[in-house]
Design a protein around this nucleic acid. Structure first.
Length: 114
DNA sequence: CCCTTGACTATCT
DNA sequence: GAGATAGCCAAGG
């Protein structure tokens, strides 16, 4: 499948918007869910210019850490939002289950078919 | 058209 | 387990 920016972006927005409160996803996972496993970097770009306010704070690195450097305003905002949603953020690491994603989310991401 | 950059990831030391 | 290296792919200069 050729890379379609619009399609990818739309998919990313849908996926990120579908992340349940209190859960998180990695960039790679989002990219994979969008149909492009190697486009973790594009995820960030897509979210950056999303038309609507997206729960981008629920997207973190594969390590489970915030993608921004500590002390940066984005890092602070992200951690703050996560804490507000009941997510424990300790030692710059986000402690939120991503393996326990709800079935509905899985359905939405992978579709009713295959 | 070539080169650099980036909200990344996996692997090696 | 932390730091360095390489691979990755598209966007922008």
């Amino acid at each position: 499948m050729n890379y379609d920016r619009e399609k990818f972006e739309t998919a990313v927005w849908e996926i990120v918007s579908a992340i349940p409160k209190g859960y998180v996803m990695g960039y790679g996972e989002v990219a994979k869910a969008a149909g492009y496993p190697r486009h973790s970097r594009m995820v960030s770009k897509a979210m950056s210019h999303s038309p609507e306010t997206l729960p981008w704070h629920r997207v973190i690195k594969s390590d489970g850490t915030i993608a921004f450097p500590v002390n940066s305003p984005f890092y602070i905002e992200q951690t703050a939002r996560l804490k507000e949603e009941g997510v424990q953020v300790t030692a710059e690491k986000v402690s939120a289950p991503r393996s326990k994603a709800e079935p509905d989310l899985d359905q939405l991401l992978w579709g009713p078919e295959e």
